[in-house]
Amino acid sequence: MTARLLRVAKITPLSPLVTRFRFECPEGGTLPLFSGGAHVVVEMPDGGLLRRNAYSLISDPMDGSGYEIAVRREDAGRGGSRFMHSRVAEGDTLRIGAPVNLFSLDLRARKHVLIAGGIGITPFLAQLRQLIRLQLPFELHYAARSRAEAAGLALLPDLPQVHAHISDEGNRMDLGAILAGQPLGTHVYTCGPEGLIDAVAETATRLGWPRGALHSEAFLSPPPGAAFQVRLARSGKTITVAPHQSLLEALEEAQVDAPWLCRGGACGQCETVVLSCKGRIEHHDHFLTDAEKASQTRIMPCVSRFQGEDLTLDR
């Protein structure tokens, strides 16, 4: 994992819950460019714990002078966003991984329709800049509960293709109207809560859209759950995964080597062989097929958990 130490150049509150962080090279210079939809993993040394959270890049992909992310404070979360909000100050340095894109634009599309719910606006802020620069046809729909919560509003360009849907102003997003009558070759991208992604998929399917034209990214963070034990056959260790810890984090804490990229159940990099399983794996990833999940022979430690008597992994 190629990570580099970057300086927090600017912290800007965007809404009561959402804050923008800008990172730059401490000694000046440019950062690798990226493609719209890419994320970076931010490392947060929190006492003895090293937290790693993935955040979409929201700055201009063609501007290497800095990286920007927007972090929503999740008070019930595992602590990463609280750390960013309360412990990080301008001038601090943090380690940031190389950009990785698991939610890229399909550049063959005749038109791109971007649908965001809440903080799901973040990957689209970079994609918008890319679409505008490449002069590609698009429309963007951004749904938020209230204007005050709509942190992305201030960052969206004033263009006729950009539509805000604020539900407490009685302006709810009508997915049927958005998806009906789009020209052949349109691709739809959804980012937001699972409910929104499911609703877009349902509406699109009802209108006869094929799956291949639908793209989505759920901002999946490792869900908490009951603590569980895991035996690690190769390293000969037994570890306990705490309620607010992911299995991957527990592996890292025990200094057991496990590769990773997205830490959100999407890329498949941390896929681990299950040697024996008495109980039920709670698969939370989007990588394994349903059949693979049912077979309980593979697990994605970044998001998935376990309940039962024995789980032994090839790590």
């Binding site: 063959r108 599309a109 020209p183 052949l184 070759g185 094929p210 799956r211 291949g212 034209a213």
Partner: peptide
């Protein structure tokens, strides 16, 4: 070539 996805 006209943009119709393969799964349609």
């Amino acid at each position: 070539a006209a943009g119709l996805p393969a799964d349609a």
